[in-house]
């Protein structure tokens, strides 16, 4: 049985930037516990001798020539912006520093 706690879920929600309600956290704590218990079985067969596969097709060295292609127009780029100021996207004050 995995030991997923509500604190852990709250931390994950913070990492994932989702403002979950306490009810959602409680429900997800239970569900996540069940799911994690069920998926943890992957460790049974994932022995050190087995290489990991990140891509289904084994390609390497897929490159693009360093040639400029037309960008979107500024209006296209900003067409979906929830808020803008001139040609820039506008966001509320930022609390965290870079």
């Amino acid at each position: 049985m995995s030991e997923i706690t509500a604190e852990q879920v709250a931390h994950l929600a913070n990492l994932a930037r989702i403002d979950l309600s306490s009810e959602e956290i409680a429900r997800l704590t239970t569900e996540l516990g069940q799911i994690v218990d069920s998926v943890a079985k992957v460790a049974e067969v994932a022995t050190p001798d087995v290489p990991a596969t990140s891509h289904p097709m084994p390609l390497t060295n897929v490159f693009r020539a360093d040639t400029v292609v037309p960008s979107l127009t500024v209006e296209q780029a900003l067409s979906g912006a929830p808020d803008r100021d001139g040609d820039k996207f506008r966001v509320p004050a930022i609390l965290d520093e870079e």
């Binding site: 930037r17 989702i18 309600s21 997800l28 996540l32 509320p92 609390l95």
Partner: peptide, 21 residues
Amino acid sequence: LTSERVMAATRDAGFGPEVKR
């Protein structure tokens, strides 16, 4: 109203339960 809180509120309101899960 900070960027962080607006992002988190948007993602809470904009995503459904399965996506959040």
